[in-house]
Design a protein around this nucleic acid. Structure first.
Lengths: 249, 249
DNA sequence: TGGCCGCATTGACCTAGATCAATAATCGTT
DNA sequence: AACGATTATTGATCTAGGTCAATGCGGCCA
């Protein structure tokens, strides 16, 4: 996964993260994207203590499911995850994809129980944040508390957009929006906004967007024929991000 | 709006709330559903000070829109609201409906800007919670902080279910789910779970569920023909909540 | 108390995207 | 390297729900 030239120095070594499990928050390549941002040095050291760092999961492993008792929220350290909610009849919906620095499990705080399942899409690592401790700490670290609320609020805001997408957008608009969202997130992490690997299957994408796999497949083909993208299996290049943006609606 | 006999004493006077603007949190009929739950008496008194209480809005008035600068989140005191997100092309999606004790505007915390619009569906009142102050206070009131996070998390959890609904459910399942959700919320507020007024238009319901008005209208007719509900304009009675539940999927 | 105007209902028809079915390409395993 | 299993692509057909159009109804204001 060699990086192109426009990568900021900060993220040069992002790929190394998973080989270096015991790195402290302040030295972590994800620092700017992650929870500790804005914490005082002393507070950060304290926080460091409670974080269960860099647990590894092979591809397809469940980080938690609805039977797991709730104690922690998680931050992706490397790799990627998907979360799903399930109905009694077995239907499931992919509610989101999560990349390094993003939080998983915040919707469980209220009920103190996971109502969804999180699965790794590739070999991945997470940092585990014991929630009780986190709450204790926020009592004396206003900045931590602000960060947590901010995270919650950001996901909420994203979910509202997703509701619009699911409720109002056409298949074409859905896929264009999805591709640009992923692109943006790769870019934010110092990777190329144009070329990346889709770690999730076509089925996962289709499910997430409320479409059939066949529709996604056809759209990929059409977008490629129209010169918007180039795909080869899981690899994708955005060839005309501008036109893609116009397709988002 | 006379109440049926199974109403808890606590909520007997819910209808009076809007006539009694300066009632303190601890004496408010919504106390059990609202933010102050679990706060110590002294803390509550302090919180009371910063709350801008019971501002009134006539039907159709915007509580805020995307041009409003963000300073506060709101709790519905009486009446009801809808929130919408808009695309540049004018399409809009109704992201939620809000009843007494429910919070509006939490998705704005992250960006410190409202990305949605909130409109009253009937003559309504809100309590305004200045967010800066709220954050200051939570530094010394762990319970307040927990309440806030809990609220955020609960809405997040609800939005995931809504995503499932929008992405996977049939029109019939969507409407059944919607009706039972509203029913549950009325019940939680001490009103009848079976008979209530839908304060939103058919168009709002359709939009929220990702359907056309005509589809909603046809479903109402069919549900009524099947003895599941009885409707007369905005009034609705759930006649067979059990079967309705089975239709939710 | 009657006359709008916006909302709701109903029917006829249409279409975006689902479903079904048949390959084809990839991946993980031995 | 070969194989079975999973995942992706492509084509043919179908359908849930959308769109269009006409009519009905209720609430509101003069």
């Amino acid at each position: 996964m060699a990086q192109s030239s426009n990568v900021t120095p900060l993220f040069n070594d992002l790929a190394k993260v998973e080989h270096d499990h015991n790195i402290a928050c302040q030295d972590c390549a994800l620092y700017r994207l992650c929870l500790p941002l804005g914490l005082h040095r002393n507070d950060l050291a304290e926080l460091d203590e409670i974080i269960q760092r860099s647990q590894s999961f092979p591809r397809g492993h469940a980080l938690f499911n609805t039977d797991t008792s709730f104690h922690s929220i998680f931050v992706v350290r490397s790799g990627s995850f998907k979360t799903t909610v399930q109905a009694v009849d077995g239907r499931e919906h992919v509610t989101g994809f999560y990349f390094p620095g993003e939080f998983i499990g915040m919707d469980a705080i209220y009920a103190k129980a996971y109502k969804s399942t999180a699965k790794s899409l590739e070999s991945s690592t997470v940092c585990e944040l014991p929630f009780e401790k986190l709450q204790e700490f926020s009592a004396t670290m206003p900045q931590l508390q602000i960060q947590l609320m901010s995270r919650l609020s950001r996901e909420l805001s994203g979910d509202k957009s997703l509701m619009f997408l699911l409720g109002k957008k056409t298949a074409e608009e859905k896929l264009a929006t999805f591709l640009l969202s992923i692109s943006k997130r790769f870019q934010d992490r110092g990777f190329s906004a144009a070329d990346f690997q889709l770690t999730m299957s076509r089925g996962d994408i289709a499910n997430h967007l409320g479409l059939a796999v066949e529709t996604i497949s056809r759209l990929f083909t059409r977008f490629q024929d129209d010169g918007l993208i180039y795909t080869k299996n899981k690899a994708i290049s955005l060839r005309d991000a501008e036109r893609l943006k116009q397709l988002c609606g």
